[in-house]
């Protein structure tokens, strides 16, 4: 989906820059973060549709970052992009709630395909949630205040 907000997390600055350029060229809104901490900070500040996350990073690594992201309780989907071919780690990431994984190097089209999938999942979940909330509002209009309260 063009216009989706993507957060690229990788310690390789050149990679995030290049990939950022490529994705921007293809209509995405891309933000780069070069460490796990930076990614969490960015997520706390702003909403993203998809996080593209490298597993092997100095400091907070991919899995730890993923756990932190999950703690935030966002609809944002996470896509693992790793040069480390470790299926075990990738599997664990999926267990922790990542959407899918891709191994580096990957074609831009493949990545976009996965991003699309992730976005759809996120979008679906969001819509479902919204629908549920609306239902609630319809059932008890006073609950509309809860929505705002939560947002704060």
């Amino acid at each position: 989906m063009k216009g989706s907000k993507i957060l690229l997390v990788d310690d390789e600055v050149v990679f995030t820059t290049n990939m950022g350029k490529l994705l921007t060229n293809r209509g995405y809104k891309v933000t780069a973060a070069n460490s796990g901490d930076a990614a969490i900070q960015a997520l706390e500040k702003e909403n993203y549709d998809v996080v593209v996350l490298d597993l092997k990073m100095p400091g907070m690594d991919g899995l730890a970052t993923l756990k932190e992201i999950k703690k935030l309780g966002l609809f944002t989907e996470t896509l693992i992009l790793t040069g480390h071919g470790s299926i075990d780690t990738a599997l664990e990431a999926i267990k922790l709630g990542a959407y899918d994984y891709l191994t580096k190097p990957c074609e831009i089209d493949d990545l976009m395909g996965k991003i699309e999938g992730a976005w759809q999942k996120k979008d679906g979940a969001e819509k479902k949630d919204m629908k549920g909330k609306m239902q609630k509002v319809v059932e008890s209009p006073s609950s509309i205040f809860d929505l705002f309260r939560k947002k704060k």
Binding site: F15, N18, G85, P105
Partner: peptide, 24 residues
């Protein structure tokens, strides 16, 4: 092998993106 593969994969990924940029 695993170590080598990983270390090569990252630069390879960058080269791939560079190529894509050139194509763009």
């Amino acid at each position: 092998s695993a170590g080598v593969a990983h270390e090569i994969n990252n630069p390879l990924a960058i080269i791939l993106t560079e190529r894509q940029i050139l194509l763009d």
